[in-house]
Every structure is written in C-alpha cells, then in structure tokens.
Design a protein around this nucleic acid. Sequence first.
DNA 1: CGGTTTCGTTGACTTTGATCAAACTTCCTG
DNA 2: CAGGAAGTTTGATCAAAGTCAACGAAACCG
Lengths: 240, 240
Amino acid sequence: MRKDVHTDGIPVLCASCEARHRGVCGALDPEQLVALARTSHKYNAGSGTELVGDAEQVDSYANVLSGVVKLTKTLSDGRQQIVGLQFAPDFLGRPFKAESELNAEAATEVSLCAFPRASIERMMQDSPELERRLYRQTLKELDEARDWMVTLGRKTASEKIASFLLMIARNIDPNAEPDSSSARFDLPLTRADIADFLGLTIETVSRQLTKLRADKVISIENNRQVIVPDLGRLEARAGN
Amino acid sequence: MRKDVHTDGIPVLCASCEARHRGVCGALDPEQLVALARTSHKYNAGSGTELVGDAEQVDSYANVLSGVVKLTKTLSDGRQQIVGLQFAPDFLGRPFKAESELNAEAATEVSLCAFPRASIERMMQDSPELERRLYRQTLKELDEARDWMVTLGRKTASEKIASFLLMIARNIDPNAEPDSSSARFDLPLTRADIADFLGLTIETVSRQLTKLRADKVISIENNRQVIVPDLGRLEARAGN
DNA sequence: CGGTTTCGTTGACTTTGATCAAACTTCCTG
DNA sequence: CAGGAAGTTTGATCAAAGTCAACGAAACCG
C-alpha cells in the first residue's frame, strides 16, 4: 500500500502547516501525523494571554503557527527578564520536565497547535527522527541564548537596541527578499517587553529608539512599524 | 555470551570514570564503550590553555573529567563574556555543527577524555540512548543559560556575586555533605574571569567580594579559598 | 463621541558601576 | 632569594543608565 508522502494521508489540519515543513512535525510520517493530529487542536490566543505559568504542571506542548511567544522569568520582587522569544514554527515545551520553570505568554496574537505531552513523549520513543528535530531546536535555542548573554552582559544600551531590531528583522521581516539590504516590520513587543528582553528600563529603550531615529538609521510609524533603510548601518551599531 | 554490565568488558580507561556514571558514556554498553575507548585519549591541559578556538573547525569532542572549562564569546573590540562553565562530567562539544561559534578554554587544570567527532556522531545513529543523554545535557545547559540571563539582565552587582558564589558552591563543593548549610571551596576562576562571567569589571567584583567579607557572609583565604559559614545568608543576597 | 486607560516620550536629577590610577600581594622564575 | 609579572585591592572621579515626574498620543469602551 504505497502512499505519496507529500499529499496522501496527511491530515487536513496539517496539509498547509509550516510546522510540517520547517518545524518538528516534518519528522513524522503520514501515519504518525494522523495519530498526533487526532489528539491535537489548533487555537488562537490574544496578546498578553498566559500560555504556561511558572511552576505550573505542564500537560501539553505546542507548535507556534503564527505570532510571537515570549518566555519570561521573574524575581520575587517583580523584576522580569525575557529569556526567549519563539516564532513560527518553533516548538513550545520542555521535554523531560513536568513542571515549568518559566512563564510563556503571547506577545502578539498567536495561533498554536497543541497536543498532549504524553503523545509527543510516546512518539519520541518510536521516532528517533522526531527526537533529533527537538534536539536540534534546543541546540539552536542554546546558541541564541548564548548570543543574548553577550548582549546582556557586555553591550551598551544603544548596541542592545540595534541588536534587538536586527534580530526581529531577521525573524519576521515579511517581505523576505533574501539579502535585501532594507527591512520593514512590525515590532511584536511593547517598549516594556523590549526593556525586559534587553535588561533595560522603558525610558532607556524609548530614548535609544529616538536616537536611532534622529540619526536616520531607522524610522518608525505608529509606534510599531519599523523601517530600516540600510541594514548595514544598523549592524554597524550592534557592536558585534 | 553473557557479560556482567558493571565490570566485565569495560575498558580500563573507563572503569572508574565518572562520565560512565553521571556523564554521557553511561548510555553505552560495554561493546560500544570498547569501540569508543579505542579512538579516545585522555589528556591534561594547564589553566589558560585554549581547547577550541572560535570559528575553528572542530574534529573532536570530549568529556570533562576534572577541572573547569569556560566557554567564551568575544566582540570585535575585545569585550568578552563567559557563556558557560563546564564541570566534570560534562560533555564538551556542539553536535551537528562543524565550526565552533565560541571559545573553550581551561579555567583551571583540566583533565579531558577526547574522541573524534565522527565516532560520537556514528554512535548517536546506533544508540538513541546516547543521543538522549546529549539532548538532556543540552536542555540542562539551556535551563542554566536562561537563569544566567536573568542574572545578567536584572540583578545588581552584589546579587550577581552572591549568585555566582552559590552556583560554584553547588557545583564543586568537595565536602559534598548534602544539605550542609556551610560550604568551603576554591574559586575556579580569577577575578577577571568572574567579571567576564557576570558582565562586570574586575574592580567591581573585587569591591563586592570585599563587602561580602566585611559583612561576614563569606571569608576568603589566599584569594581563592572561599568559606561560606551560612549558605542561607548568601542565598538571601542572591535576590531570586 | 468623550472619557479613561494604556502606552510612549521627554526632562531633571540620582545612583550604580565603569574608568583611571596607584599600591599591594602572591606566585613564578632565573 | 631577588626581581618581575600577574593578579588583587582600594581610592577618586566620571558617565551611562536608572528613577521620578509630567505630558502627549493612541487605543479602548461605554
């Protein structure tokens, strides 16, 4: 009983899903995809919705299908730090641990495809390919985290802002003309979020954005829409 | 042909090796261990030795058998940040990537057990158990990196120092009486390294250590030996 | 549509940690 | 053991970013 891997037997839900191409579901054959799709459900969440609470029991994982999810940690006196941002088609979840050590919150409108933790963990047993994809994403996240440690520990406020804008541009520039030297995108984060991401205050973020604007490195429309006419000039400010 | 897993057929090199118990080699059966041991070699390196260079081709991985390895990143103008510390029996290496994105350097005298990259990657194909151990270590490193992002981004200089001392105490206190409320250990890092780890300057590190000493939270002998009479008091200063 | 709330900007001032400079200690080496 | 290098401490001063406060703009809601 032969099947065309690319179309036949693929659940409707998954047919056009990006997670099947670049995300972890790409590791699954049609049969496994059907099994997973049976227990999964797609849903949307508005900006600000808490998806996973700190110290909470986690019983489902998810793929990010669109939007941005922020992962945060909070000190007892309320100081907060964003420790990760997840874009489509990232996998959201921490295998081998039932209790979350951090908070996951929708930074924008998000669309998620959730499935029970047990389904994935069972499937990981059968499919080394799935486990390998998850492992690779974790390695990528670790690489990113280490890059951010340099930014947090050693860059100035203005370098931090430039680095942040570059990172966002690379992750969500919609007119993804490769190697285009300009970019235009919506900031998925508020000033407060950016501050929490960079270890700064809201005021400093605002002042540095104003400075970049004054120096014509960027322009901003409606507080959210950022235009970078020359990515090279922005890179020069990121201090790498 | 039955073998006692715990003793028979284990290479001499591995017999008393900690990596076989708590490290990644624990995933291997005697046969695999023999195969790996054939291509591996143990060696020591003095403090300050560069083990892996940034942007260098990596052709071998290693287990840390003793000592501490620091992973660093450097900006073009020389600013440096330590992005990870590896203690025995951690695995040193970044699977699926031939070129290193960071620098690995011996922070103390270290002893390593190195093997060709190809051996491990071949073995990963055969042994899901090995891949899983590596995956778990990577998840652990990611958890740690995220904790440090909070420290780097949101803690004050004195909280950073206290957090650092606690982390070291937990990793290398030799008189590992569990739940002992006091600790005594040698700092594996110089003041300059501590500064690079915490995103501070040498002078600030020194001043904060002096303050902790003045407040009788710690005492220091010979610049390196730290005594913490009451870990609770140190924790209170770490600001979690 | 007007009022309220949330979000962002700007200014004045303060504080934390960096920088610059000098002295001291420890350790290594000839 | 002397001399020097590397590592550490301490002090004086400075600057970057934080705090406090006020205002403006956008989004939200009855």
